[in-house]
Computed example of a mutant assay.
Amino acid sequence: MSQSPLRVAHLIHSLGPGGAENVLVELAAAADAGGLDPVFLGLSPHPDPVHARTLASLGFPVVQLELDRWDPRAVTRATAVLRGYQVQVIHTHLKHADLVGALAGARLKVPVVSTLHVIEDAPATRMARYKRTAGLLGRRRFATRTLAVSHSQMRWYQQLSGTTEGVEVLPNGVADPGVPDAADRARIRAELDVPDDGLLIGSASLMRPEKGHHLLLDAIARLDPELPVTVALAGDGPLRAELESRVAADPGLARRVRFLGYRDDVPVLLGATDLVLHTSLADALPTTLIHALAVGVPAVATDVGGIPDIVTPETGLIAPTEPAAVASAVQKLATDPALRTRLGAAGRAVFLERFEARGWVERLRAVYDRALAGR
């Protein structure tokens, strides 16, 4: 039975590169599965609002307020935009938007849904703690539903807030890229000079401290030097120059590691790999690992945050955040093609059941409908 269109406004701090930002693109592409009619509102400027361009190219309304973070004018301006689009539900993403959206929703008497995208165990500064608390209070006071993207994040939020009332686990989804194309696989491996008997390891994440790139390099440095491995690091960020310098100064790493920068073809890239390596030190639900499931490529990943919701003994190998343990897991998977095939096939089945975008959007529509019914 078809559903009547539902106008949902998605508020986020900005529409530059990032995992939470990319979630909005995945949602937009599958919006019709839930009868959703989304509007996207970026609150603050970004030097490269790549996702704003993508969303606009898909034909969706995109508004960028261009206000600095935590500018109090954001509430009034956002409220005016949302009123103009006659939104029925407000969906917020990350702390700044949580607070702005909560206050705008109260003014408009519109239900607010908030997705938790990160796990913040110990904010480093007083201001960071204040912002976390402000987002928490905004959600508790005004959000009709709060969505945790993993069971680990649900437990973290319960410890932080003292309750799980109004909170449910709903993992994000990504579009099904289908089985990797042989021509794409061959092209990418040729671009990276992977020999015919070589192994390609892929990683895709922002180069920030919590993403664990130094741990990744520590592990790669411990691999058997005779193992024919090429490591492709997709992504950009504040640590990139430091990481490139480290690799350039180490002949063993320089021989193996390639820096690809920002990529808008991550599923295609990962589909050309033999295994995916993700060494986060903290991560709520990394999209890269969902992409790995989607293309049937097994992963080695660290045992943190929501990663065990994606990578299980049936779909990959989990390791503690210790270089030797990560290297051992990579070595095991790299030298056992039958194991890679078995884990990859199981991962593909898990993706279709739990993380495929159209099913995710249908479940999200049900959340919105419950929020409206319980208003």
Rank of each mutant, 00 (worst) to 15 (best):
P111Q: 13
H214L: 14
Q158T: 15
L27Q: 06
A204K: 09
V194D: 02
A373S: 13
L206H: 15
H213T: 08
F40A: 08
Q158E: 15
W70V: 01
D48F: 11
R358M: 04
P49L: 09
D181K: 06
Q331N: 09
P17Y: 07
V110K: 06
V63L: 11
F355P: 00
G166F: 07
P251N: 09
A122F: 10
A284F: 00
V326D: 02
P5M: 06
R187A: 15
L41G: 05
T302E: 10
R185G: 06
A102R: 03
Q331F: 05
A282H: 10
I307C: 12
G261Q: 08
E244R: 10
K332H: 13
G34Y: 05
H278M: 09
R53T: 15
L215K: 12
P337D: 11
H13N: 08
V229R: 04
G101R: 02
L260M: 13
A56H: 15
A134E: 00
L227F: 14
L216T: 10
T315A: 04
L289F: 02
R69I: 02
L333S: 09
G261D: 10
H91F: 04
L253K: 05
D265H: 08
V167F: 05
G19L: 13
V89G: 03
Q158Y: 06
H291L: 07
S245W: 06
G178C: 11
T321V: 12
R185V: 11
L94P: 01
P45E: 08
T273S: 15
S44Y: 00
D193S: 15
A148K: 05
R7V: 14
K109V: 09
G344M: 00
P171N: 03
F142I: 06
A56M: 13
V276A: 08
A124I: 03
R107T: 12
F60K: 07
R185L: 13
T115A: 05
E353A: 14
R342D: 11
V361T: 08
R256H: 08
S161V: 13
R155T: 12
W360S: 09
G84S: 14
L36P: 04
A134G: 10
H278C: 11
G16E: 02
R83S: 13
L281F: 12
R340E: 00
W156Y: 15
L364G: 02
V75S: 07
G316P: 04
R354E: 04
G374T: 15
E244G: 11
V295W: 00
G202P: 08
A272F: 10
L27A: 08
V8K: 05
T335S: 15
S114M: 07
A345K: 02
T79N: 07
G305H: 11
D48Y: 11
A97V: 03
L11E: 05
Q158G: 10
F351H: 06
V276F: 01
V257C: 07
A346N: 14
I12H: 00
A221R: 15
V81N: 10
A327E: 09
N22V: 03
L160F: 13
M1C: 12
I201N: 03
R132F: 11
A292W: 00
F40I: 12
N172G: 06
R256M: 10
D48M: 05
L41S: 07
T79S: 12
A175F: 01
K332W: 08
A33C: 09
Q64V: 11
D37F: 07
L275W: 04
P225E: 11
